[in-house]
Simulated assay, not measured.
Amino acid sequence: MLGDAGLALANELARRGWRVIATTRQHGGGPRAGADAWHERLEAESLEMTSPQQLAALRERLADRRLDLLFVNAAINRGNLPIDKVPTEMFTEVMITNALSPLRAIETLRGLVRPGGTVAVMSSEQGSISLNTEDGYELYKASKAALNQLMRSYATRHADDGHTKLLIDPGHNQTQLGGLDAPLTPQQSIPAVADVLEAQAGTPGLRFLDRHRQPVPW
């Protein structure tokens, strides 16, 4: 599922020789625009991830495929408001996009992941409750904490499926979500994220890791 970081990850995995099925809300060129040299290893599928109907349709289109890795990357940020100033509609939109929809996607598509495969989600240090020691972005932080908790519940419910399960903090990146003042670019951080995915493959259980393969406090 592609954002700026998702596109960079799809490109990086294709560069490493993976065959990648990338979903995008865009029509037309989609992810191939960012994968010039590797486009033959990159397929594009259209998906609005907040739509259960579109998720189900994607599952049907991929019914005969098997995945080594299912990676979900989806998030929005609606600004730096204290929680008492957040409209109900905004709260609902952010929680549906950042927490509910990624787990719906995983539950819908997990049957495509081969035994020993990996199910991973792009999370954030912002979702760490113990590291929440600075003011700001309360709704975004809450949505990422909810994502982490839902992924923990998912891992508990599917503890015996043998899948590697990962929550990954890629660092603060210069994306539409992270802003232009962020210290990292996806080109700097995403190869390290790919390293984590490859290094953790075949290790069952849930881990919350940063791009340096270090645990992030819950």
Rank of each mutant, 00 (worst) to 15 (best):
Met1Ala: 12
Leu2Trp: 00
Gly3Asp: 08
Ala5Met: 11
Ala8Gly: 05
Glu12Asn: 06
Arg16Tyr: 11
Arg19Phe: 10
Ile21Lys: 09
Arg25Thr: 13
His27Arg: 15
Pro31Tyr: 07
Gly34Asp: 03
Asp36Phe: 07
Glu40Ile: 05
Glu43Ser: 13
Ala44Met: 06
Glu45Tyr: 04
Glu45Trp: 05
Glu48Gln: 04
Ser51Asp: 12
Pro52Leu: 03
Ala57Val: 00
Arg61Asp: 01
Leu62Pro: 01
Leu62Glu: 01
Asp68His: 12
Leu69Arg: 01
Leu70Asp: 03
Phe71Tyr: 15
Val72Phe: 05
Asn77Lys: 06
Pro82Glu: 05
Pro82Gly: 10
Ile83Pro: 00
Asp84His: 07
Asn98Pro: 04
Leu100Pro: 00
Leu100Thr: 15
Glu107Ser: 11
Leu112Ala: 14
Leu112Glu: 04
Ala120Cys: 10
Met122Leu: 15
Ser124Thr: 01
Gln126Asp: 07
Ser128Ile: 13
Ile129Asp: 08
Ser130Lys: 02
Ser130Cys: 02
Leu131Ser: 13
Glu134Thr: 15
Glu134Gln: 13
Asp135Gln: 15
Asp135Cys: 05
Gly136His: 12
Gly136Ile: 11
Glu138Leu: 13
Tyr140Ala: 03
Tyr140Ser: 02
Lys141Arg: 15
Ala142Val: 10
Lys144Pro: 01
Asn148Pro: 04
Tyr154Cys: 02
Arg157Trp: 02
Arg157Cys: 05
His158Asn: 09
Asp160Gly: 15
Gly162Gln: 04
Gly162Lys: 06
Leu167Trp: 03
Gln174Phe: 02
Gly178Ala: 04
Gly179Tyr: 02
Leu180Pro: 04
Leu184Asn: 06
Ala192Gln: 15
Val193Thr: 11
Ala194Leu: 10
Glu198Asn: 05
Ala201Pro: 04
Pro204Ala: 06
Arg211Thr: 02
Gln214Thr: 13
